[in-house]
Design a protein around this nucleic acid. Structure first.
Lengths: 143, 143
DNA sequence: TATCGTTGCATTGCTTGCTATGTAATATTA
DNA sequence: TAATATTACATAGCAAGCAATGCAACGATA
């Protein structure tokens, strides 16, 4: 029970739970984090634009945005030029948790990687990027 | 967008989808894989015993077992000595896909890690085990 | 300009994870 | 042994992922 796939899956779930506990006081959940990071960089994006930054499927993002709107983190306003699209803005609340959230993310990163030195961390990240690249290339070839 | 957490999560999702596509012809889904691996090793386990091998929560396993029973992979029979417990057996169908499933898992492992040499694979697995260990230790301390 | 394909987003339904809680059955103890 | 605690499993409800599909609005073209 320790193939790469099993370990990656296990690690991912552990990390999500660590993140969940740390950001719970901010009133957000792990699935909202990548979207918030993007919106803290730039507001007023459409769902399409956001999607381009996020490695998730459109349906997943649409549902996540609905929950974020329900939770008072964002608002979807009408697009000035295209009635199909909507522009996404942070609420004051969504904006206000930015610094604490960045802080939490940094702390988790440090805590969790504390047993690896800098070179090892770089090697680890490098391996993951290479495997991710490999899988994406495999998928493209088959199409 | 390339912290360890983000990469791990991304990689885990990619791997699950690769697995999903490869095992779809066998009529099973990724969440059933670890349970099947355990049952192919030994049948007639209780849920409790299975749980001890699986790094998931009891409720998750109970639901997975229900879907596996629905899909005709396992049957839950009454425990000879304890009326609360049930022993879990593979159906003929569950048993029959064993070799193809092992084969699929091996192939995926190879395909996906093909850009890393043996030393790099070992290093990669080692890093994951260390980080997993670190997180579990962190959680224990807090309790 | 009327038609028709494309685009942007929402919805539905499923899986797989979680926590919290319910319910028998079993085990312990007063 | 009656009361109580614990155990084994199930259930409910939510999050976050996916594919498939629906629908209105937009854009291109005959």
């Amino acid at each position: 029970m320790s193939s790469a796939g099993y370990l990656v899956n296990n690690l991912a779930r552990l990390l999500v739970e660590v993140l969940r506990k740390r950001i719970a006081p901010l009133g957000i959940v792990p699935g909202q984090f990548p979207t918030l990071l993007a919106l803290w960089e730039r507001e007023g994006l459409t769902q399409k634009e956001l999607l381009g930054m996020l490695d998730i499927e459109q349906a997943t993002l649409a549902n996540t945005l609905t929950r974020m709107e329900r939770d008072g983190l964002i608002v979807r306003k009408e697009h000035p030029a295209d009635a199909r699209a909507r522009v996404i803005h942070l609420t004051e609340r969504g904006r206000s948790i930015r610094d604490s959230a960045y802080q939490a993310a940094l702390e988790i990163n440090e805590d969790v990687l504390a047993d690896l030195n800098d070179d090892e961390v770089q090697a680890f990240l490098g391996y993951m990027r290479r495997v991710i690249g490999r899988i994406k290339r495999l998928e493209k070839e088959k199409v």
